[in-house]
Structure formats: structure tokens, C-alpha cells
């Protein structure tokens, strides 16, 4: 079998219900429709450390680790140009409290996250998923409309952009509510295999020169 997009898409719509998120398993491939809000380092810090909340009610929504490129359109609004994911691990420090206080149910980014976030996901019924890195054009294409922006004083990449998406994905579930933390687990496996490969190499290179 090779890669063919034949399976039926599993699409979840915001506001996500807790049971829908709890039914996800690490490794599932999902798509989302509804409302996504971006936040990066500064947005997390403002909410968690300074206790400032945006006007947007984040309860049940999808949080996207991304610093999009947007441009002003003729109608006075904004168009999405590019919005690939950024490295989620940078937000690890604030993520657990962010989940607790904001009520977001799905976090989307790039790469893995740590144990603190995983624990918050289990406790509050949230999940973390990854969107393929570098696929900024596909991501932007899934955005139907930018519906709002807050905290613009933080600059374009750090502001909270709110937008309506249609079948945004693929999102590969990384942290679920059942203890699954796929990329962290993968990392351990890669480390083990690296150690094995070093032995193999040592054997192969014994009489190399």
C-alpha cells in the first residue's frame, strides 16, 4: 500500500465536546472545522503570567501555535497569506495553566510537548496535535475568514488571530487524555535505536580503512 488519501476524513467541529476530545487516541488523524485562535510565546505569557484575558472566549476552541502572515484586504479586514505551525515546545512552560484557565480543548502545533502539558490534557480533557511542518500554504487555504484579532500590540506574529477554518488538517493527535504522548514516546524509541545503530556501525566500520 502506498499513500492514498482514501480514508474518510474524521472532522471535529468547535466548540469541541469533552467526550469527543476524550475519544481521541494518539496517532489519530483528524481535521477541524470552526474557530481557531493563534497564540505564541507572548500570548501565553500575557494570559498565564499577567492574568490578562482576551475578549474572545476560548472555551472549547482550538488553539494554534502559529505566527501567521496576514495582509489587509480592500474591505478593511484581513486575509490569511501563510500560517504554518511553530514549535510547540516553546510554550510548554505556560501551556498547562493556559489550558486550565482558558478551557481550550485542542492545541495544534509542531513537534512534541512535555509531561506538564500531557497531565493538564488528562485532567481537563484536552489534546495536542501536530500539523505537518512547513505546509503553510495548505494551512492558509483551510482558513475561510479571519474573524478577529486581539493584542495587536504584540506584533503580527504574536497577536491573537481568530479565524474560521474548514477541514483544517491533517492534524495528527500527539497527546491524548489516556496517557498517550506520541512524539515523547517516539523520542525514547529513536534514542534506543540510535544506540543500536551505533553498535551496528561500530561493527561495519571495524576494517573500514
Amino acid at each position: 500500500m502506498s499513500c492514498e488519501n482514501t480514508e474518510n476524513k474524521k472532522v471535529l467541529t468547535t466548540p469541541f465536546r469533552e467526550e469527543d476530545i476524550r475519544s481521541l487516541r494518539a496517532g489519530d488523524v483528524i481535521y477541524i472545522s470552526g474557530t481557531m485562535v493563534t497564540a505564541r510565546d507572548d500570548g501565553h505569557k500575557r494570559l498565564v503570567k499577567n492574568g490578562v484575558f482576551p475578549e474572545i472566549d476560548l472555551e472549547g476552541l482550538a488553539l494554534y501555535h502559529a505566527g501567521p502572515i496576514v495582509c489587509k484586504n480592500d474591505a478593511g479586514g484581513y486575509d490569511m497569506v501563510s500560517c504554518g505551525p511553530t514549535t510547540s515546545m516553546r510554550m510548554e512552560k505556560f501551556q498547562a495553566e493556559f489550558i486550565e484557565r482558558s478551557g481550550v480543548r485542542l492545541i495544534v502545533g509542531k513537534g512534541g510537548m512535555g509531561e506538564k502539558t500531557a497531565e493538564a490534557c488528562r485532567k481537563y480533557g484536552a489534546a495536542h496535535g501536530v500539523f505537518p511542518g512547513g505546509c503553510a500554504v495548505v494551512a492558509a487555504k483551510c482558513v475561510e475568514e479571519i474573524t478577529g484579532v486581539e493584542w495587536e500590540d504584540l506584533g503580527m506574529p504574536e497577536a491573537l488571530w481568530k479565524f474560521r477554518v474548514k477541514e483544517f488538517g491533517p492534524i495528527i493527535v500527539n497527546i491524548d487524555t489516556h496517557g498517550g504522548n506520541m512524539i515523547a514516546d517516539n523520542k525514547k524509541i529513536f534514542e534506543e535505536r540510535k544506540a543500536e545503530q551505533k553498535k551496528v556501525l561500530s561493527e561495519k566500520l571495524k576494517d573500514f580503512h
Binding site: S2, C3, E4, P132
Partner: peptide
């Protein structure tokens, strides 16, 4: 399957 969905996304991109 999860790797396939990443490749599909890259090619669509």
C-alpha cells in the same frame, strides 16, 4: 497512515 497523511499534505502544499 499518519506518515502518509503528512506526505499527502506536503504534496498538496
Amino acid at each position: 497512515p499518519s506518515a502518509c497523511s503528512v506526505y499527502d499534505c506536503m504534496f498538496e502544499n
